[in-house]
Each structure stands twice: as structure tokens, then as C-alpha cells.
Write a protein that binds this DNA or RNA. Structure first.
Length: 378
RNA sequence: GCUGAGGUGGCGGAGCGGUCAAUCGCAACAGACUGUAAAUCUGUCGCCCUUGUGGCUACGGGGGUUCGAAUCCCUCCCUCAGCA
């Protein structure tokens, strides 16, 4: 089980400072959750993930079920032992893959709305390589094409075998091009599945319910109320919120206002550097995002003034650290010049070094936000 | 000096009479990436402009054959390999 304490609520916003106690240590919130889909933060060892100030990771049910399979993980004593990660762990339910391997793949979409997208996807539409039913989803494995069924029961069972501290209800992440009817139907399913997840869970793991509703305020509100009424240990907020950032923040405030303030709230898959202050101010406690790791592997690194693309030849002549004010081991020891060389030469150590810096940089920003909340200034 | 093989855009390398400003790869440049099918993907990449079924200059140099040449012929220059 987990225990969540709100230590301080901001007088200036909905931001809150908290402590999330898990059987594997305490996490100060607000916190970034490191994405470790395949039981690793890509390019890092678990020790390095800790050095990058991560205290909570999220692994993935769909991916780990296909490879290596939850039985292997269980035989290794569960995910914590398997990956030698002795801090907090969550597992995502596979609900995101309903989108990313379904309509996301079909239309080349990201889950976040882009302006200009049309709501063309109607209720009843099915993606090419999976089939969404009222009981769950038939996937075609992206690895070998074999059929695999994941529903609330299956997802929870797998997540129990994986053994993370926090597990998530199985949901459907609706695509940003879905029309209102599609979202409505999808939401009904997600809600039904939420109840089913609670019903079938036998373990003592904390289970978060997932709020959906896409960019429709009334549906988001309804979803938050419904999920709140079921008695989950915490909440996750999924899907997208409309094409501009201000609508995202308003939506998050709307949702958070409906949720039990004594329970933790996790925002799924959102967390660009510039988003972080806003989402914290909306009352989110934890959030995960692939940006720091993903961008790092592309040679893009974060600094106070924005981003640097170390693929660009200009950085070969730049002997400064990535960020002068960063206290990470990479900035302490390596120049932009060297890192740019590694990235351009496609040396794998470059990917690791940028991943470490990016995560450390994000986490330092959040650490500072926590200090500000503590001082009542945020 | 002889014999053989070659000289194509920043580089490597296709093309071997029209559909060629020239396949492709690399490099370069630009863009994308938010619960990770991702050490990935997309675009530009001779010069000019009013950006177009637009103009110009181009496949080592020069000359020729042809309606038409990167592609055929002559000649010169250069590179590589082998032999003197």
C-alpha cells in the first residue's frame, strides 16, 4: 500500500507539496516519474537513474507482458529485484498502447492535439492492427504479430505479477481526432473497466483510476466524479486536453477540483519543461514524460534558456558545459564539444550522458518548484 | 614509355543516345517528437528568380557526329594498377 500526505498547499495556486510513501521509499511530490517502459530508463542503469534524481519509475504492462513476460519477472522476485530498482515503481496498464499502436500508428498521431487536426474519427471506428471491444482489446503484437488480448482483468493480473508499488486501471487513451460520440463511448468503456479493475485486484498494490474525457470539459468532470466515487488509492489523468496549453491547464484544474484532495494525482505522459510549472500549479502531484530521455537520445539537451541540439556542428567548438548552473555529473565533467562529438559520431555513451543530464535538469527544476511551494511562493 | 582501368554534384557511387539537374548512400542544413513499435522520422540539398509543365550553367578540357550527348568519335590533360 501507499500513503500520501499533503504537507503544504500553495496559497497562490492549486500546487501542493506532498510525500508519497511506498513500500520502496518515499517520494517528495511534485515529482517527475521516469519512463522505464521495458523495465529500464533507456540507456541508464538503475543506479544511474537514481543519480539523475529519479525516485519513481513507470514500466509498461503491454511491453513487459510481451517481453520477457510477467512470469519471468515474477520468477526474478518482481520488477524491483529484476531491474535492481529499490525505489518507487508504477506500471502503466497498457491503455496507452490501445492508442499508440492503434489509431496513433494508423494516422501517425501523437496523443497531444495539434492545431489543425480534424475530429474525423467516429464512434465505432476500429484501428487497423487491433480491435477494441467492450471487454478489452485484441492487440497484434508489434514484435511478431501474434494476437494478444488485454482487458481490465488481464492487465491487473499481469501488473500483480510484475509487482510495482502502484498499478493503473486499464483504460483507452482516446485519439485526439476522436469526435464527441467516440469519446463518450470510449469513456463508458474506460469507466466500466475501472470498476472491473477494482473488483479483480487481489494484491495490496495501490491502484489508480484513470480519468479520461479528452478535450470535453463536461466529460472530464463527469469522469473525475465517477472515478473518484469508486474508491481508488489515487488518480491518473490521461488523454489530451485540446490544442492549446491554456486549455490543458484549465482542464486539469477542473478535473483536480473533483478529486479527493487527500489522494495522489498523476498526470500521464505530459511534461515538457515549459509545461511543468503549469501542471504543478493545477494541482498535479506526479507526472511522467518521455521528453527528457527521448530528446536526449536525439542529441537534444535542455538548458535554462531552452534546448540545444548537439547534432549541430557549431557545438564542436563550444567548450562550455551543457549548462553552467547545472550540478549534474555530466555538466561537471564534460564539454558541449565532447558531447556533440559523441552524438555526431553516434557513440552510445553520448545518449547516456544526455539522458542523465536531461533527467537531472528536469528533476532540479522540480526540486526548485518544491522549495518554492514550501516557501509559499509558487 | 607501353598495356589496362578510370575521371559524374561536398564525398562515395549509379546512369552508358532522348523520359537527366542526373537513382542511391554518406555528409550538410532545417523541422518533428509529451502514459516510448523511436540511438527515430520528415523535408531541403547546382545557380537564379516573379518558385514555375520558369530561366541558366553543368557529368576532366577542347573539338566533332546527331534533330538530340554524362552516354558515340577524335584529341589533350589527369588518376590508378601492372610491365619496362
Amino acid at each position: 500500500m501507499i500513503d500520501f500526505r499533503v504537507l503544504k498547499e500553495s496559497p497562490k495556486s492549486r500546487a501542493r507539496l506532498g510525500i508519497l510513501k511506498t513500500p520502496h521509499g518515499e517520494i517528495e511530490t511534485p515529482a517527475l516519474v521516469g519512463v522505464a517502459t521495458q523495465a529500464t530508463v533507456k540507456t541508464l542503469t538503475s543506479e544511474e537513474a537514481r543519480e539523475a534524481k529519479l525516485r519513481l519509475l513507470i514500466c509498461n504492462t503491454y511491453h513487459l507482458h510481451l517481453r520477457p513476460g510477467e512470469k519471468i519477472v515474477k520468477a526474478n522476485g518482481g520488477l524491483h529485484k529484476f531491474m535492481n530498482w529499490h525505489s518507487g515503481l508504477m506500471t502503466d496498464s497498457g491503455g496507452f498502447q490501445v492508442f499508440s499502436l492503434g489509431f496513433g500508428r494508423d494516422f501517425g498521431l501523437s496523443k497531444v492535439s495539434k492545431s489543425g487536426l480534424k475530429e474525423t474519427l467516429e464512434e465505432g471506428s476500429q484501428p487497423k492492427s487491433l480491435k477494441i471491444t467492450d471487454d478489452g482489446v485484441f492487440f497484434k503484437s508489434h514484435l511478431d504479430g501474434r494476437e494478444m488480448f488485454l482487458g481490465p482483468k488481464e492487465s491487473i493480473k499481469i501488473q500483480e505479477d510484475l509487482g510495482a508499488d502502484i498499478i493503473l486501471a486499464f483504460d483507452e487513451c482516446p485519439p485526439p481526432i476522436a469526435n464527441r460520440e467516440y469519446v463518450l463511448k470510449s469513456l463508458e468503456r474506460t469507466h466500466r473497466w475501472a470498476k472491473e479493475c477494482l473488483r479483480v485486484k487481489k494484491s495490496k498494490q495501490a491502484l489508480y483510476g484513470i480519468v479520461q474525457g479528452s478535450r470535453f470539459k463536461d466529460l472530464r468532470k463527469e469522469s473525475a466524479r465517477f472515478i473518484d466515487s469508486l474508491g481508488f488509492d489515487g488518480y491518473a489523468i490521461g488523454g489530451e486536453f485540446g490544442s492549446d496549453k491554456s486549455s490543458m491547464v484549465k482542464m486539469l484544474e477542473t478535473v483536480n477540483a473533483e478529486l479527493d484532495s487527500s489522494k495522489p494525482r498523476h498526470l500521464l505522459g505530459i511534461g515538457y519543461l515549459e509545461d511543468i510549472p503549469k501542471i504543478v500549479k493545477s494541482g498535479v502531484d506526479t507526472f511522467d514524460c518521455t521528453a527528457p530521455t527521448h530528446y536526449g537520445r536525439r542529441g537534444i539537451t535542455f538548458v535554462s534558456s531552452g534546448k540545444l541540439d548537439l547534432n549541430k556542428a557549431i557545438f564542436l567548438k563550444d567548450r562550455k558545459p551543457i549548462d553552467r548552473n547545472c550540478g549534474c555529473p555530466v555538466c561537471g565533467n564534460y564539454s558541449r564539444s565532447y558531447l556533440s562529438h559523441l552524438i555526431r559520431a553516434k557513440e552510445i555513451s553520448g545518449l547516456k550522458l544526455l539522458t542523465v543530464h536531461n533527467l537531472f535538469f528536469f528533476n532540479t527544476l522540480i526540486e526548485n518548484i518544491r522549495k518554492e511551494i514550501k516557501k509559499g511562493k509558487f
